[in-house]
Amino acid sequence: MHGLSPHIRQLEAESIHIIRDVAAEFRNPVMLYSIGKDSGVMLHLAMKAFYPGRPPFPLLHIDTTWKFRDMIRFRNEIARALGLELIVHTNQDGLARGINPFDSGSSLHTQIMKTEALKQALDRHGFDAAFGGARRDEEKSRAKERVFSVRGSGHTWEPRNQRPELWRLFNTRLGPGQTVRVFPLSNWTEQDIWQYTLAENLPVVPLYLAAERPVVRRGDTWIMVDDQRMRLDTGEQPELRSVRFRSLGCYPLSGAILSQANTLEAVVAEMVAARTSERQGRLIDADEAASMEKKKREGYF
């Protein structure tokens, strides 16, 4: 915690407090690891929380099979370097039905390969608490979510019936069929995440840094051709551009921005000056009004 501003120190301590509380109060917790920058910070905080011990829970990655190859390499190396158990789950049923971002559309793909897959994994392993790296500044319905978000059977979220959360006295009691999603980064902003990544010198997936990559232009955004499965329109030719990503997901659904920022410092400088939010490049949120709230009611993180 040296060299951190008082603001970041407060956030760090608050998150560690939350992570320890979950480990102490729940029977079988798990940490969702999405490989992105927020997950990276959350995982780092978990390492700190139990030092000199290790986090007493495994990592879970929901693999849609459409993640960037760089992400998968990074994921495997992180788990190896930290000596943590990594559970990878794919919705095999969805795979068998041929669900993919091109034919199924982003909305159905997300529903089946992310939301349903997550529920399957949580049920299969009997996890009663799952950490997620969501932040309240991401989106309006996130801003209303609790740190400890209780989900009913079927993992549904009922925004009108959330438990009041006072001081730091979290109610960790669950009834039959209930589970909880816990968000230790609730009070962090995108800027805080990058400042912390910089100050702590955390590794990030190289895709966050600008490099020449094969991309095609789709509307206002650039889609990277990460493998042979990418569907190109007739006459469309991938071109090499210096791009980077502000948020990472399935590659056909993640928009890149043109950028020369190829170091963390340069990324932070660009981000401070940015005029659009990080989710803008995410095609899944633009689908319908209040779509995040709808997805969350259905069990999305």
Partner: peptide, 10 residues
């Protein structure tokens, strides 16, 4: 390329 310089207090 990760970093330009060693981390300094912000």
């Amino acid at each position: 390329n990760h970093r330009e310089a060693a981390p300094a207090p912000a």
